[in-house]
Design a protein around this nucleic acid. Sequence first.
DNA 1: GCGACAG
DNA 2: ATCTTGTCGC
Length: 226
Amino acid sequence: MRIRRLHSWDLDPARAIRLQEELRTRVRLVPPPSRPRIVAGADCAFTPDGKTVVAVVVALELPSLREAARAEGRAPVRFPYVPGLLSFREAPALLQAFRRLPLVPDVVLFDGQGLAHPRRMGLATHLGLWLELPTVGVAKSRLTGRAPDPGPLRGSYRTLRDAGEPLGRVLRTRDGVRPLYVSPGHLCDIPGAARLVLRTGRGFRLPEPTRLADREVGRLARRPPA
DNA sequence: GCGACAG
DNA sequence: ATCTTGTCGC
């Protein structure tokens, strides 16, 4: 798919924070498509030497959840891991994978936060602006905000908030398993984000698009380039 | 100054 | 993210 360049990724942490504060004004929290045809999932991993970021995007068809396409991207690591600035470390590789993807998804799920971020600009939100597509943040642990524990069954959830402001949901995607931190990225809202995650799940903790991307990127990172 | 801290 | 064996549970 074609992607419009929004800005440079060659920044230092201080400038990255200023950019996030500037970009947050462009985010739109609106209901995502109710009947998406193609839902993609993206994730990253690092090569054993820690010098390269490998990204994989897997696009699935709904409601069958059958694979429609997948693509890989690589980029040198040129930004440190700083909580709150994850997109500056992983986006270059992710964007290359999307440029190589032979179709345009209706929605994209990312491994990380969306709105549930200190400046409301998590990885899913930032990439949503670049892709100009509805995106959802699906994180395995908390970055910002608090919420009571959700019930023990799949589907139960509690609103994640920061000083009263709703940021997303702590959602149980499998009975008795640690919940996921789901928040809207761009062109999405809180109920829509949670609904998309539940609709693309198959009984595993992670929704299928993200789970398949995660599994594939893990193997690729430990094997020569394609 | 002391914790907290996506991947 | 990544380093790492066995082990508890269904």
